Structure formats: structure tokens, C-alpha cells
Amino acid sequence: MVELKSVRDREKMRRAGRVVAEVLQLLRDAVRPGLTTRELDVIADREIRRRGGIPVFKGYHGYPASVCVSVNEEVVHGIPGSRVIRNGDLVSIDLGATVDGFVGDAALSVFAGHPPDERAVELLRVTEEALYRGIDAAKPGNRLGDIGYAVQQHVESHGFSVVRDFVGHGIGRQMHEDPQVPNYGHPGRGMLLKPGLAIAIEPMVNMGHWAVEVLEDGWTAVTRDKSLSAHFEHTIFIGEDGPEILTAIS
């Protein structure tokens, strides 16, 4: 069942989104060669709690950390640990927090040090652009398929591929609510978008083929062909006048 949010709900979601945005910016700025992925988790946990939030990822279906850190061919759900980030690594950070009963969720990708090549830089640029193409399509009167189509068309026009196995989602009192929000699809199809709908749009884009597999840890998803993958995400609220980004980073 899809729950439409009230104006009061939106204000609470703004607070959660602000916490996520602030902490995600700190994490982005902290990424550097020589840092371990566990150190990013320590920062995430501390800074979310310092702002009055609760790390929503920690303990979610048994997930052991407060942030997901996925490196290079890792697409999503990378578990922070002893891995040392190297110069040129592509680091994707996915973060969620609960504040006053509502959840914010966002992700970004960044290079540690110098990017390996121009094609990798293009992958990040196109993935972030695709996120905003999807957001622009998330307006009342459109349908879910319009969001996925906007993302997919932009990605594939640059020779990259959209992951099918993981999609965006509704969000509110829970991190994952209905509806699912694929990053691919056909225009004019799917659920009608109405004011009050809160969703997380999150393109995961591979340099090679879209196929992924999950490692033995049960969480970390990697590209099957070991190509690079990038990930960007925002929580948005669809209002009468269109989408509002609740997790915008200044």
C-alpha cells in the first residue's frame, strides 16, 4: 500500500533529509587514499547521532554498519571494514538516518585522489545527471515509468548500463516502503504520481554490463564483469508544484 504524506510529515522528512545531507557531505570530504572504509562508518555513526538521528542501516535485516561503502566494482551495500582506500578508487557512499520517526536516504560517489581516466569521470557525471533527470520526471500527473525512462535513456545514451536488480523505493516512516522505483522503464506506464508521495530515486550505473552478483557476505553487490559502478540517490517529496529534494547537499 502506498502512503501519501501530509504537510506535517514533509516537515519531519525535511529534518531527516538535512541530517543525511550534512553527514553525507562530511563523508564525501573525508574520502582520501589511506583511509579505511571502517573509518567512514565511525564518522557516519557519530555524526548522525550528534545531530539527534539514528543510523537506520545499522541492524536493518542484520546489516552490521551505519553506512554502506562500495568501492570500484562494488555496486551497493558494501560493508565497511579494514579495506584501505587507494588513489583512484571510486567510492560510493549510501547513508540513511531516522529523525523524529521519519527517514532520509541518500547516496553519492566520489574518487579518492585522482580519477583513473576520463571515462570513469564521465561515469560519475552521467550517473548524477541521470538522478536529476529522474527527479525532474517525478511530478504530479506523470507515472513511475517516466522516472525510470528518463534515467535509463540518459545513461544508455552515453554507453553505460542501468542496474536492474536494485531499485529506488518509497520512503517515510520506514526506509523501504511502496512503491518500488526502477531506474528503467517505459514512459506513461506504472503508478500515477500524486502530491504527497515520498520516494528515493537512486540510479546505480555500470561502466560495462548491468548484471550484478552478491558476494558471500550476503550484502555486497558487485558488477559481474568487474567494471566500475557509480551510485547517486536523493529522497524527494512530490508536492503540488513538483519534486522537492529533501537530501540536497549544499
Results as ranks from 00 to 15, higher is better:
residue 118 E to A: 12
residue 105 D to M: 01
residue 106 A to P: 12
residue 122 E to K: 15
residue 122 E to S: 14
residue 104 G to C: 09
residue 122 E to A: 14
residue 120 A to I: 06
residue 126 V to L: 02
residue 105 D to S: 03
residue 120 A to R: 00
residue 103 V to F: 07
residue 108 L to V: 06
residue 96 G to L: 08
residue 113 G to H: 12
residue 126 V to W: 01
residue 99 V to N: 12
residue 101 G to W: 14
residue 126 V to E: 00
residue 106 A to I: 04
residue 117 D to W: 07
residue 96 G to A: 15
residue 117 D to I: 06
residue 97 A to N: 07
residue 97 A to Q: 05
residue 108 L to A: 01
residue 120 A to K: 01
residue 121 V to W: 08
residue 106 A to Y: 09
residue 97 A to M: 04
residue 102 F to A: 02
residue 109 S to N: 06
residue 96 G to D: 05
residue 119 R to N: 09
residue 123 L to S: 12
residue 107 A to N: 09
residue 110 V to P: 11
residue 99 V to D: 12
residue 111 F to Q: 09
residue 111 F to V: 08
residue 106 A to C: 11
residue 102 F to E: 06
residue 107 A to I: 13
residue 97 A to H: 06
residue 116 P to E: 01
residue 101 G to K: 10
residue 107 A to P: 04
residue 103 V to G: 01
residue 106 A to E: 02
residue 98 T to K: 10
residue 106 A to Q: 12
residue 101 G to P: 13
residue 96 G to N: 07
residue 109 S to P: 10
residue 107 A to D: 06
residue 120 A to V: 09
residue 103 V to N: 12
residue 100 D to W: 10
residue 122 E to Y: 00
residue 104 G to H: 05
residue 121 V to T: 05
residue 103 V to Y: 03
residue 104 G to M: 06
residue 104 G to E: 04
residue 105 D to I: 00
residue 117 D to G: 11
residue 125 R to V: 05
residue 122 E to F: 00
residue 110 V to E: 07
residue 110 V to R: 02
residue 112 A to F: 10
residue 99 V to T: 10
residue 125 R to M: 07
residue 109 S to M: 08
residue 106 A to V: 03
residue 112 A to C: 08
residue 100 D to G: 08
residue 99 V to G: 15
residue 114 H to W: 11
residue 116 P to I: 00
residue 114 H to S: 14
residue 126 V to H: 02
residue 102 F to K: 08
residue 115 P to E: 14
residue 97 A to W: 05
residue 102 F to V: 14
residue 101 G to R: 14
residue 118 E to Q: 13
residue 106 A to M: 13
residue 102 F to I: 08
residue 101 G to H: 14
residue 106 A to G: 06
residue 105 D to L: 02
residue 124 L to I: 03
residue 116 P to M: 00
residue 120 A to N: 05
residue 120 A to S: 13
residue 103 V to S: 01
residue 98 T to P: 00
residue 116 P to S: 00
residue 125 R to F: 02
residue 96 G to Q: 09
residue 115 P to K: 14
residue 114 H to K: 15
residue 100 D to H: 06
residue 110 V to M: 05
residue 101 G to T: 05
residue 100 D to K: 15
residue 100 D to Y: 11
residue 101 G to I: 03
residue 96 G to W: 05
residue 117 D to F: 07
residue 118 E to R: 12
residue 112 A to R: 01
residue 102 F to W: 12
residue 103 V to H: 10
residue 122 E to V: 06
residue 118 E to H: 09
residue 96 G to F: 08
residue 113 G to S: 11
residue 115 P to S: 10
residue 110 V to T: 15
residue 124 L to N: 09
residue 111 F to L: 13
residue 106 A to S: 12
residue 103 V to K: 04
residue 126 V to Q: 01
residue 111 F to K: 01
residue 126 V to M: 02
residue 108 L to Y: 01
residue 111 F to C: 11
residue 99 V to W: 07
residue 108 L to G: 01
residue 103 V to W: 02
residue 117 D to A: 09
residue 111 F to D: 03
residue 108 L to Q: 01
residue 111 F to M: 08
residue 117 D to C: 11
residue 107 A to H: 08
